[in-house]
Design a protein around this nucleic acid. Structure first.
Length: 417
RNA sequence: GUGGGUGUAGCUCAGUUGGCAGAGCACCGGGUUGUGGCCCCGGUUGUCGAGGGUUCAAGCCCCUUCACUCACCCCA
């Protein structure tokens, strides 16, 4: 037996129904908000990701599936979708007709992390991006859209955490201040934090080690450093979130793992999934389109963890599997042939119909119909056929009525279509 | 990458100081010549994760390894 790759998984019938449900709700809601579906490849040139996500990030440094193709070009299985969508936006000059474009996609992403609950090496994201809108109204609307989607999916136990990361004008001052503090307190920090100090200084603010907490007690907040534009933008986001009734919490330590974010950063968290509390995250990245060679156009986007959503949805919706309208139980060769013809034609006509082809006992076939959850069973045996009819049984009420064999498919269509 | 837990039937799991591998569920058949759910009877199902070692004898003890899982880290 050949094992599947670590961190990868199959989605089997019984679970896949939740995925379909999520995808349907997403498509209809997103289209109501003006988003259009876009399909992008699962592989790109490695350079696209290293340039957009950031050379020094965990994702690029140690989590990407990167290899040389037969010609020697370095390619990477996408660890996220934003880079590809931005690339497509620039490459096809989608901004030419209208710089404002709202795009979404659903698909697998790949990161080589250690698997755990709610974290896989091939995982699925619903990803959406809005180009050409710098207004804070869009930031607020996007979070409203997310909360609305989650409510539809019965994921009620979630809160929005928001922060502002500033912009190239104001962030450097904050980063410098923080770095200065970290250098001063270097001796007091735990091993992890001394490592983080250089790479990801903001993370130190989040450390649970008491000594680090004490050392960071008077650490600066990014919010105190925001320039007037960023401050105004952030205040407006919060004002409009309140207007739409989106519950949110300010989280001054919220940071995104990707370098390209500016200003608004947010995460939707839930308590239902153990350590992997984030079911969606995103933010504004006003400089990325230009950095990747496009025009200077602002953008904001987010990603939803579908695996995590499906796990939660499974707790609410017990059975979404399709139930047959009709099961045909056949006794004897003549009936078997007729049942074969009827089931095939009913299914083709859009009526979910099933049968047993193994020639088993009536009792066994009834059991099978019950297990499948069939609404009705057509019983066809020699005794009925002699009279030119079959029996239609309602499985819930046990009522049985004869139905003529002639034009049976048409009659069933009339009753159950 | 680091740590903890777990690997026995399709599923959930028992398995005593080392002594013939088990139960429930599921599945198949019967009880009812041709009628589902409840009940009763019978039956099928095993690389005990893998490899090596100790022993007369290993599911159990020792070593190695793999997988799953939870957490750190990071994130969706």
């Amino acid at each position: 037996m050949i094992q599947l790759i670590r961190g990868f998984k199959d989605i089997l019938p019984g679970e896949v129904e939740f995925w379909q449900f999520i995808e349907k709700q997403t498509a209809s809601l997103f289209e109501n908000f003006g988003f259009k579906d876009i399909r992008i490849p699962v592989m790109e040139r490695t350079e696209l990701f290293s340039r957009s996500i950031g050379e020094a990030t965990d994702i690029v440094e140690k989590e990407m599936y990167t290899f040389a193709d037969r010609k020697g070009d370095l390619i990477t299985l996408r660890p996220e979708a934003t880079a590809s969508i931005v690339r497509a936006y620039i490459q096809h000059r989608l901004y030419a007709a209208d710089p404002v474009q709202k795009l979404y996609t659903i698909g697998p992403m790949f990161r080589r992390e250690r698997p755990q609950k709610g974290r896989y090496r091939q995982f699925y994201q619903i990803d959406a991006e809005v180009f050409g809108v710098s207004s804070p109204l869009m930031d607020a609307q996007i979070m409203f859209l997310l909360m609305t989607l989650f409510a539809r999916l019965s994921v009620t136990d979630c809160t929005a955490k928001i922060n502002s990361l500033g912009c190239p004008n104001c962030r450097p001052a904050f980063t410098a201040g923080l770095s200065r503090l970290l250098t001063e307190k270097a001796d007091a920090l735990c091993e992890d934090c001394s490592r983080r100090s250089a790479r990801n200084p903001l993370r130190v603010l989040d450390c649970k080690v008491p000594a680090c907490k004490a050392a960071m007690a008077d650490a600066p907040s990014i919010l105190d450093y925001l320039c007037p534009d960023c401050r105004g933008h952030f205040d407006s986001v919060m004002r409009h979130l309140a207007l739409l009734g989106v519950p949110f919490e300010l989280d001054k330590r919220l940071v995104r793992g990707l370098d390209y974010y500016t200003r608004t950063a947010f995460e939707i968290q839930t308590t239902l999934l153990g350590a992997q509390s984030a079911i969606a995250g995103g933010g504004r990245y006003d400089g990325l389109v230009k950095a990747l060679g496009g025009p200077d156009i602002p953008a904001i986007g987010f990603a939803i963890g579908v695996d995590r959503l499906a796990e939660i949805a499974a707790q609410h919706h017990p059975d979404l599997s399709a139930k047959p309208k009709i099961f045909i139980a056949a006794l004897g060769d003549a009936s078997l042939t007729l049942a074969f013809e009827w089931v095939s034609k009913l299914a083709a006509a859009g009526i979910h119909a099933e049968m047993d082809m193994a020639g088993r006992s009536l009792k066994s076939q009834m059991k099978q119909a019950d297990r499948l959850g069939a609404k009705h069973v057509l019983i066809s045996g020699d005794a009925e056929l002699e009279k030119g009819q079959v029996l239609l049984r309602d499985m819930a009420t046990k009522d049985q009525v004869p139905v003529p064999v002639k034009d049976l498919v048409t009659e069933m269509q009339r009753r159950f279509a």
